[in-house]
Design a protein around this nucleic acid. Sequence first.
DNA 1: CTGAAAGCGCTTACAG
DNA 2: CTGAAAGCGCTTACAG
Lengths: 324, 324
Amino acid sequence: MVTRADVARLAGTSTAVVTYVINNGPRPVATQTRERVLRAIEELGYRPNVLARALKAGTTQTVGFVVPDSRNPFFAELAHALEDVLFASGYALLVSNSADSLEREREHVRVLLDRQVDAVLLISLAGAAEVEQIIGAKKPAIVLHRVSGDSSASSICIDDKQAAFDIVHHLRADHGIDDIAMISGPPGAAVSAERERGWARAVTGDGRVVHETFSIAGGHAGAMRLLADAGRPRAVFAANDQQAIGVLKAAADLGLRVPDDVAVAGFDGTVESQFSVPSLTTVVQPSRQIAEAAFEILRTPQADTPVRRMLPHRLALRDSCGRH
Amino acid sequence: MVTRADVARLAGTSTAVVTYVINNGPRPVATQTRERVLRAIEELGYRPNVLARALKAGTTQTVGFVVPDSRNPFFAELAHALEDVLFASGYALLVSNSADSLEREREHVRVLLDRQVDAVLLISLAGAAEVEQIIGAKKPAIVLHRVSGDSSASSICIDDKQAAFDIVHHLRADHGIDDIAMISGPPGAAVSAERERGWARAVTGDGRVVHETFSIAGGHAGAMRLLADAGRPRAVFAANDQQAIGVLKAAADLGLRVPDDVAVAGFDGTVESQFSVPSLTTVVQPSRQIAEAAFEILRTPQADTPVRRMLPHRLALRDSCGRH
DNA sequence: CTGAAAGCGCTTACAG
DNA sequence: CTGAAAGCGCTTACAG
């Protein structure tokens, strides 16, 4: 392995000068010397050891991202957007799966901190208590969903409650459907709680809720229960697109037509929602902007007060509700 | 930040002993001393700096994984399985997206090597030429698809050609469909070339191929072209599940029934293939075993000869071909 | 069984 | 503008 010392030797300078050339500072280097160093780097095929730099400089240019399940297309889109934004600035992203276990979430945060990440992004299963761990380690914590008022973490989110209200209200007001059930996330899940509130407000308290995991299988199971009996609802609102896709499948299994027999709406706006059969009416979260906002926050030296950003959502009205 | 020196001071020992306790070696430590060290660690809430360890020990316990697109559910499943397997042994996974650009693929490999990953896993867009770069850096390279005979990389794959043959032959032999078109990947894509050969052998050379990106949109676009005209094929085999889901959507858009008007088969065996409407007949790749095999290879000190593992595939026969 | 010391590959004041 | 030297937080021969 070629090191800075090898380059310095070949260029006939000190290692400090090699560093100055590579980092364009903090001291100036004579043009001639710079040329020699550059040539030596070229000749040896030298590449700096990022680790050693990190140890000394105190920044790893690495960000951690803990999600419940990286296979969920929405989280995959978020992670992809983050990676893209970060890579452009020389950062890398370490993604961890909490697998719906609070214990694992905590462990992953710890491991990420051990690895000296510069910041931790988090989709927390519960109230984001691990955030204090991150703050304690003097690293920025950014939660990518709604947090309760007193958390010391920054957060980026859309208005989940309002968005849920909007889409459910659309079913009522524009399609005249009153009987709207909801498939929510696991009891206590931070992400779905607000969406449930928005739904409840829109249906003015009437309607069944079932709690399922945030997966296609969860949505399918929930829908099989909701739609099997005669008193089935005229519409189902699911807390995420994965569940909604499971609902579409359950309807097909039961021989029900969507949207004629039952209308379906999801939440997230993943690519697959555009191509499901039928295409899915859903709330679109601006994943790219969320990623960009996260990067912006973690780049700017933080004051003591956490940053809170609420981004706009939009509705995608498609075939699963009748397309208008 | 608490360091080993702080622990040593509080425990009244040298930093070496602290290391011996933490690493359980390589030197023995008296029980009493160990107790004192453990207590000091506890009291200070000390956590080792993984970076510093990596610099000295020469291993980062980090593995890189370069994929064309981490949002593709199959790659997401692979990455997830890898992360799971790796995490259990204290490793972390760094996922990068080559975004269908050979240049980006190369750049990502370089960046991963700069970050001193212990090994690079790769789904290569082309012939895996970057592999030599990795080998040159004296790191294990493991390609997660078929490689040509002379590569010095290890590889793990299924028999793509045979698998493609099997599923296409099933359509012919068991469903009596002769007119089977294929939607393949972009021209020259390493992953789809073998699948194309298997299809060609099964249809005995007859049938149209169109080349599209490995996405739902790609499959949709390809199918719109194939299925729009009167002389449309009776079945479409897509090079991956994403494309196949796009085909299902295109059929629905055109008012064609699947499988009555057109049968559809995919490749990969992602979770979404089980829940599409109709459910998708596909080749199932054993993602978990691929991940486990990869970890096994990178753990075992490599001989000079690359390891080649061919894992078994299976067919999932579902509604999109008539379910038998 | 334990400690003092060198060193992993960098960066950065400090002199000159 | 450049170099010698200390140090980031660890690990590991080498003595004792």
